[in-house]
Amino acid sequence: MATKAVCVLKGDGPVQGIINFEQKESNGPVKVWGSIKGLTEGLHGFHVHEFGDNTAGCTSAGPHFNPLSRKHGGPKDEERHVGDLGNVTADKDGVADVSIEDSVISLSGDHCIIGRTLVVHEKADDLGKGGNEESTKTGNAGSRLACGVIGIAQ
């Protein structure tokens, strides 16, 4: 089992970053940390998408990683996509320092995120509470600013 993974985020604009993942036990939580720069100040949706395909930019990554066919939600919700990591918060300089621990994603097994795409979005994720159909699919997080395929790390 891989215990570490990394993702280099890039987009068409100024947004870029490096996100690290570490899972010490196969059924334990995954620590997610790193930094994203070039964002507007505020909240930005942060999700693992189904495919590791960036051939047409971030759009070819498909929908959120959702092997259990659930509705979109927040990272602490029972009803959520596996890939729903909530929001990252950018400061006035456009930098989001990421520090998350998640017990639904994994670096092995059915919820493995390796080979899938991590995406940072234009807007805040409403965590499935926006009151419309799009909220239950995407959290109304808007366009995909930057993305990268999650790969095994040393």
Rank of each mutant, 00 (worst) to 15 (best):
A56P: 01
S103E: 15
H121E: 01
A61T: 04
E41C: 05
A90W: 05
G74E: 15
V30Q: 02
C7Y: 02
Q23P: 12
V104Q: 09
S106F: 07
T3W: 13
K76Y: 12
L127R: 07
K123D: 14
A153D: 15
E134N: 04
S69V: 15
I18K: 14
V95K: 12
K92I: 09
G128W: 01
V120T: 08
V149C: 06
D126R: 01
T136L: 12
G52R: 02
V82L: 07
D84Y: 00
V104G: 11
V149F: 04
G83A: 03
D102N: 13
G131P: 14
F51D: 00
G142L: 10
G83T: 01
E134W: 11
D77M: 13
P14S: 05
E50T: 08
H81P: 03
G17R: 01
G83S: 00
V119K: 01
G115D: 01
V88D: 00
H49R: 01
V104K: 14
F46R: 02
N140M: 11
I100Y: 13
K129P: 01
G17S: 04
S26W: 15
P63S: 07
A90N: 11
K31N: 14
K123W: 15
A96P: 04
N54L: 14
D97S: 07
K76P: 11
T59E: 03
L39R: 00
G151S: 03
E25R: 12
D53R: 03
A56W: 06
S26P: 04
A124Y: 14
K37H: 12
I105A: 09
D91Q: 04
V6Q: 07
P63T: 06
R116H: 00
E78T: 12
S99A: 14
A2H: 06
S69H: 10
T59D: 04
V119S: 00
S106D: 15
Q23Y: 15
P67C: 13
G142E: 04
N132G: 13
L68W: 15
I18F: 10
G52E: 03
G115F: 01
I18E: 10
G109Q: 07
G52W: 01
S35E: 11
T55E: 03
C147S: 03
D126K: 00
P67H: 03
G34D: 00
S35W: 14
D12N: 10
C112P: 15
L145V: 12
T89R: 10
L145W: 10
I36K: 00
N87H: 07
H64L: 02
A96G: 05
D93H: 10
P67K: 05
G38C: 12
I150T: 05
W33T: 10
A61R: 01
V149A: 06
P67A: 07
I114F: 05
C112S: 13
G13R: 07
H111S: 09
G142N: 08
G45K: 03
S60Y: 01
I36F: 14
G86T: 02
I152F: 04
N132V: 11
D12C: 06
L68Q: 11
E78N: 11
G42P: 03
H44Q: 05
S135C: 04
Q23V: 13
G139C: 01
D77L: 14
D97I: 13
A5I: 04
T136E: 11
G45R: 02
V82S: 10
V149H: 03
K4M: 05
H121K: 01
N66G: 09
T138G: 09
S135K: 02
G45M: 00
R116N: 00
D84F: 01
T3L: 10
S143L: 09
L39D: 00
E101H: 12
R80C: 07
E41A: 12
K71Q: 11
N132Y: 06
V88T: 05
D84Q: 03
V98Y: 15
R116M: 00
